[in-house]
Write a protein that binds this DNA or RNA. Structure first.
Lengths: 177, 177
DNA sequence: ATCATCTAGTTTCCAAACGAAACCAATGGA
DNA sequence: TCCATTGGTTTCGTTTGGAAACTAGATGAT
């Protein structure tokens, strides 16, 4: 699955990038000159993992300590076992969470944040809380969009959208390239 | 697509929740007692929108002011027109960005953050920068996972995981499978 | 002895989404 | 007329998502 990227290992070899994704930088002695806006940059894969609905919910849930598999499943209502299993495996592979198996009566598997994963929890938590705090605003915007198509602030799209930042419409070069 | 949720409109009616998702709270005079851990909670939809690779890249790109369609497309290398168009439309519907059409020589369409969307940019930017900053650590974790299966930091996952929720295990040992 | 239950997953299968490329419409210039 | 630009939509094959069923090991109940 990731092999499609790994085939291009001449581009991205073990954390050191060669040509693209940082352009004019020197090759040696670099640490994190990745550019997530560049295609085939490994940061895209991380972003794909981290910018995921289930992943952020899982990471948020693990904030208060290790949690068992079925515990997470019951906490995040609606998640399927398959998706939970897959997401946990990916997060573990990326070093964000750890997996510990205990030979208890029925087997116990605990998932916990790694130090690396813990550096993300604040952002993740903010994201989750943002959704809860701004839910009403989003719902209002959706209603406004669906009925009437007239935005809250703009009277009409093409009529005369004299936005503050767009004042000099005449002689305005679209800053192409 | 969203009709599956809207069919349950007795549950979620216009921003006010009735039974689930807040349980023992009063129905009237509530503002944001949403629970993203509850299934069929509208916050799940917002999280689905916001916790998306392309959406965070777009929001991050719009931080410095309005950007045209093809400008975004060229900036976020690898994004397809279809996905860009779809994501922009969804973000606009949710009130995170605005769309302004100008009747210029070739038509100009500018996308910009709304005040609501601007409240997310810091978190989004953090997420993107996290990916760039911790890329090497993730790559190292992936290698460690793929070859050997032994975690970098933990020889045995949580040597003494005596957590409150865990039943007292007799002679437990983290069998790393 | 067999059934039921708990654990933590995997497998199956179908629908939904993704993504690359082609296509569309409007307009102006060579 | 042909081409280039704008901002999209459509098509179609591949990939992913998700609900439900199934696996498997150990234990307790009937």
């Amino acid at each position: 699955m990731r092999s499609g990227y790994l085939k291009e290992s001449t581009f991205w070899s073990h954390g050191f990038l060669l040509e693209t994704c940082m352009g004019q930088q020197a090759i040696t002695t670099m640490q994190h000159d990745y550019d997530v806006y560049e295609d085939r940059c490994p940061t895209r894969l991380v972003l794909d993992r981290v910018a995921d609905k289930w992943a952020v919910l899982i990471l948020d849930r693990l904030q208060d300590g290790p949690v068992r598999f079925n515990h997470i499943r019951r906490a995040i209502k609606g998640i399927s076992q398959k998706v939970l299993s897959q997401t946990l495996k990916k997060l573990e592979r990326d070093g964000l969470i750890s997996r510990a198996v205990f030979a208890t009566v029925p087997v116990t598997v605990e998932y916990a944040l790694t130090p690396l994963g813990r550096t993300l929890t604040e952002t993740v938590s903010t994201l989750v809380h943002w959704a809860e705090r701004n839910m009403d605003a989003v719902l209002a915007a959706q209603r406004s969009y669906d009925e009437g198509r007239v935005a809250v602030e703009t009277p009409g799209p093409s009529t005369a959208p004299l936005r503050a930042e767009m004042a000099p419409r005449v002689g305005f070069e679209p800053t192409t390239k």
